[in-house]
């Protein structure tokens, strides 16, 4: 007989890998009989679904939302890093082997 602590653990596992059939049966059986675990399971699954929904929208900022902005310093640093990593290749005559 599964207790609530084991249920909480196994329910989480169902989100990561398929359980063995006997375990799956015990989880199903427990949730029918136990109101608190039914609620727990629904909440854990809802959170997981929410994160999957977030992840499937590539442009969506997610946690931290629109409050996050690159500082001018960070911008300058990134542009400098790009410039430093880009060889000045446009004009072959100015090209030299200084490296």
């Amino acid at each position: 007989m599964l207790v609530c602590r084991d249920f909480a653990r196994l329910l989480s596992e169902t989100l990561d890998h398929p359980l063995e059939p006997p375990q799956r049966m015990r989880v199903r059986f427990h949730v029918v009989l136990c109101g608190p675990c039914r609620r727990y399971g629904a909440q854990i699954s809802a959170l997981s679904a929410l994160l999957r929904a977030m992840e499937s929208r590539p442009g969506f900022a997610g946690p931290a939302g629109p409050l996050v902005e690159l500082s001018p310093e960070a911008r300058a640093r990134i542009l400098a890093a790009i410039a430093a990593a880009t060889p000045p290749a446009a004009d072959p005559e100015t090209r030299s082997d200084q490296k």
């Binding site: 442009g59 900022a61 997610g62 946690p63 931290a64 939302g65 629109p66 996050v68 902005e69 690159l70 960070a74 911008r75 990134i78 542009l79």
Partner: peptide, 14 residues
């Protein structure tokens, strides 16, 4: 960087 910088930072910060 202007177009995507903040979105990438938000993604990473999350």
């Amino acid at each position: 960087l202007s177009e995507h910088g903040n979105a990438l930072l938000a993604y990473a910060s999350a």
